[in-house]
């Protein structure tokens, strides 16, 4: 790790001010950034911690909307339970250490192609609220490790409409236990949304054909025979492109079954 300055503001305004410098970088739970720093793969002059800012913390439910502060850790979401599929997802991320440090805002902003949270945000049609604007999840994830966030923009909260039925099923990569393929299915009055993580070189994506099929028949059988093209899938030592494309169908079926 190279030396850096650390600021730990307690208000959003102070965080924004601290991030104005070109060499400053936000730090949330640090579950990706800290290992990167330890490997000396990044050299920020200043890190601005977001976890001491009260307004970025906590979970509130109003009607059918669940709002989660950007710096809320996975363990808190797992324990909340008002959006059961989301809590179940959070409870499967990493290990207890990771879940008590890692945050939802950090995970979404990083947009790791194998992370769990992006699939929940995208399938739920969540809104990602920042210190500057509100971004629909359909517009937020722009590619592997890429989002619509501008430099220094802070995810202050994530607003989830709670669906009628939902489930997340993750098939583990054997070593890291990130998602080799993870599928989040959410059924609302407006239809069904299916978001797939882990599989694609473009990061999290919606599976339109499955959504169409499930909107008319919300059952595992509706997925039979549907396939995603393997060209865009990730191929690595843990699974070929074909294997991942195959798993997308299998895991989607299981997610639909789990959503009941």
């Amino acid at each position: 790790m190279y030396a850096f300055d650390l600021e730990r503001p307690t208000t959003l305004a102070d965080a924004q001010a601290a991030l104005k410098s070109d060499e400053a970088q936000p730090l949330s739970g640090g579950q990706t950034l800290i290992p990167t720093l330890k490997q000396r793969l990044a050299m920020p002059e200043k890190l601005v911690s977001l976890t001491a800012i009260a307004e970025l913390q906590g979970i509130t439910k109003e009607g059918d909307t669940l709002t989660i502060g950007g710096a809320t850790c996975h363990a808190d979401v797992a324990a909340d339970g008002s959006y059961p599929a989301l809590s179940a997802l959070a409870g499967q991320i990493g290990d207890p250490h990771v879940r008590n440090r890692g945050t939802i805002g950090g995970s979404l902003a990083n947009n790791d192609p194998s992370a769990c949270y992006p699939s929940a945000a995208l399938a739920s049609g969540a809104a990602i609220v920042t210190d500057r604007r509100e971004i629909a999840s359909d517009d937020f994830f722009t590619g592997m490790f890429e989002t619509a966030l501008d430099e220094g923009e802070i995810v202050t909260s994530v607003r989830f409409p709670i669906p009628e039925r939902a489930a997340y099923v993750k098939f583990d990569q054997p070593a890291s236990r990130f998602a080799l393929v993870g599928v989040f299915v959410a059924k609302t009055a407006d239809g069904v949304r299916v978001a797939v993580t882990g599989a694609s070189e473009g990061g999290v994506f919606r599976w339109a054909e499955a959504e169409a099929a499930l909107s008319s028949d919300f059952s595992p059988a509706a997925i039979e025979g549907l396939t995603v093209p393997s060209d865009d899938m990730i191929g690595d030592i843990h699974g070929t492109k074909d294997y991942r494309a195959h798993l997308v169908g299998v895991i989607t079926k299981r997610a639909v079954a789990a959503a009941g």
């Binding site: 098939f171 843990h238 070929t240 294997y243």
Partner: peptide, 8 residues
Amino acid sequence: LSPSRVWA
């Protein structure tokens, strides 16, 4: 015998 190898 990883899942991908068994499936293949």
